[in-house]
Design a protein around this nucleic acid. Structure first.
Length: 207
DNA sequence: GACAAGATTAGCT
DNA sequence: GCTAATCTTGTCG
């Protein structure tokens, strides 16, 4: 059923530098096929988490436990964690470091009606990490540690950001110096990002 | 077994 | 902008 959604992305770009991988993820289309229903969106907002040396990361100083053990998988897998009753999804990077990129926002493309149904509302479907996982049907129990580009979760080339903006990360106010690291990347002018203010750019910030 | 914390969200002022 | 709601896991007793 999902054969026509073959990936055309070489995941190798995530194998080395996490910050670089985060920027290259912007604009890719994430497609999920769950319960036979297809939803997708273009990535508009990400945050990099640099593992051992990053106070804001779950794996700071090499911490490892049942909750974050999937962070130690190599690139090409995903790490789903739950908190405050929501799920958040990371794309893992590097061969052996516990680093990854949190997907914080996407622009809905396919299956918008399904997203509305899953979210139980018509607006703000995917402009936050907990929101987009719910819209796409991602759950920690079923998808934590899974590989990309299998029958359920596929990435392929989507759009190209006209301009990428780097900002400090969000929601880590108690992480001391780590709160200032400019590891959040967004498509400038795209409204499908968390805490969006102002007016959307022409073409939502895509080229 | 109790309690606090967390990469959040929704709803109200 | 602020606060309550929500839930899984870690930590301590």
């Amino acid at each position: 059923m999902i054969d026509k959604f073959q990936s055309d992305v070489d995941l190798g770009f995530m194998s080395n530098d996490t910050l670089n991988a985060a920027k290259q993820l912007l604009g890719l289309e994430i497609i999920t096929c769950i319960d036979g229903r297809i939803t997708s969106g273009f990535i508009t907002e990400v945050e990099a988490y640099l593992g051992v040396g990053d106070k804001a990361a779950h794996t700071f100083e090499g911490r490892k436990n049942k909750k974050n053990e999937m962070m130690y998988k190599p690139y090409g897998h995903i790490y789903v964690y739950s908190m405050h009753g929501h799920n958040c999804m990371n794309f893992l990077t590097t061969h052996s470091e516990p680093e990854g990129v949190l997907i914080r926002g996407i622009e809905p493309n396919m299956g918008i009606d399904i997203m509305k149904e899953r979210r139980g509302r018509d607006n703000n479907l995917t402009d936050g990490p907990g929101k987009l996982t719910k819209s796409l049907g991602i759950t920690r129990n079923e998808h934590n540690g899974m590989e990309l580009n299998n029958a359920t979760l596929i990435v392929r080339h989507g759009k190209t950001p006209a301009q990428i903006l780097a900002t400090p990360r969000i929601g880590i106010d108690n992480k001391e110096e780590a709160v200032d690291y400019p590891y959040r990347f967004i498509v400038e002018g795209n409204p499908h990002v968390s805490r969006f203010k102002g007016r959307a750019a022409d073409g939502n910030g895509w080229e």
